[in-house]
Design a protein around this nucleic acid. Sequence first.
DNA 1: CGGGAGCTTGATTTGCTTCAATTAGAGTGG
DNA 2: CCACTCTAATTGAAGCAAATCAAGCTCCCG
Lengths: 258, 258
Amino acid sequence: MAEQTMNRPNIRQIREACRTCSLSDLCLPVALETEDVDALDGIVERRKPLARGDVLYRSGRPFGAIYAVRTGALKSMTISEDGEEQITAFHLPGELLGLDAISFGEHPSTASALETTSICEIPFEELETLSADIPGLNRQLLRIMSKEIFNEQEMLHALARRTAEQRLAILLTSLSDRFARRGLSSIRFRLPMSRHELSNYLGLAPETTSRLFRRFVDNGWITADGREISLIDFDALKAVTGGGASAMEKNAGLTKHS
Amino acid sequence: MAEQTMNRPNIRQIREACRTCSLSDLCLPVALETEDVDALDGIVERRKPLARGDVLYRSGRPFGAIYAVRTGALKSMTISEDGEEQITAFHLPGELLGLDAISFGEHPSTASALETTSICEIPFEELETLSADIPGLNRQLLRIMSKEIFNEQEMLHALARRTAEQRLAILLTSLSDRFARRGLSSIRFRLPMSRHELSNYLGLAPETTSRLFRRFVDNGWITADGREISLIDFDALKAVTGGGASAMEKNAGLTKHS
DNA sequence: CGGGAGCTTGATTTGCTTCAATTAGAGTGG
DNA sequence: CCACTCTAATTGAAGCAAATCAAGCTCCCG
């Protein structure tokens, strides 16, 4: 399937079309015809950028669209009845969010921007209509959701069973791979989230996260200046993750197909 | 959508058809026509029962079908390179498994029977073909996967952030609701998994799980005779879960539609 | 030059794991 | 049918990792 892709004469145009709207997840790994991509592109709405803290959609609101991150970053979170927010995911450029709303008709989580963020809106109604005509698109939607399930499972056990040190190493290497996937530097990047948000996501106390950053720096694995991170010894980081967990390998795996 | 379902004259037949093949997840919550259900039913293969420990599919094997549990129970697990098995999910009657394989073309996890188990095989190729003709089915497949994503997210944070006590309470109430969904008793049931497997899934030491069962019994919340569990005080259990987490509420939510 | 939030650092406590036995159960063969 | 064996489950004691409690620090913004 991926092999077929390579033989198509217009694959470069397709990729370009995808890239402009950050729909790489939806388009790149499959062999969509150029006209199909155009059709997909046609239903995508570019929304005005979100400022830090702006809410893209709120938990409980009716579901009408999924979203692709163009630039910036967002967090997904649920808010328990005692008002405590629980971050369930970070969304980087090129990634999709809102998929978890498909089954309920309303968003089970709230998404807000971590920094100035531009996104594309993909109305689900129209995407579904389009899917009926384009078998490849339908399949790709399923693929993405399946991948999502798997990544969640990986992360689930990454967080459930691993030590704090392993959790942070997993997060850093995961971010690295996800940035790399979008063509950004995999060894030097700026964390879009605060230490507090990062700790919340990892299920750790902020103090623990802070101590870990110190330890990683002392070990010579990374340098950290606020949110600016450099991975000095990626292999060392990778080694402490515990091997088994790597939601990122799967991202890399899909990228290779394109 | 769910409302439309109620008005169809043949909804009862549809449900019956679904129930016979344990495809409730796939059929019940949506308004599929009788002939559609028949078509779906036609592609489903009933495989011979699995004995305890039998492997349904192994990690790395090519993906060809998803499966529905008719009776019994299975576990999904990944095996890290050091040979340690990590249980990622339990699958009860009426539930689907194998969804996580759709994106990669091969199974990322291994599924094996916890007890004598009968399952239905749903060849994915044919399901996809069928989906093209039946919009409702396609949507439902997406719904299920979306729900799966959400449940995973819920569980992820249930396990990552909660105490051992909360984790076990969440598991017990979740199982209770899932059994109830299949029309089985929600207050008295037999655990399909060993303490060891249960602990593995929850990310706890078996000793901790054992101590927790004791504590729950001492508190008068449950009675436990080996794998036979009775929930004496469901509300107390529910209370200690921490409120926010409830992958099961969502299961119940879908049931209500039917 | 304050003021405040985010981050870091130190001291103490708690909860879970680990280590070490013991007990209970399930299956087996005499 | 009962002793025997092996594995699963339980229980106790000790150790450790991370949370919590409590200050300081630093940077940003007024």
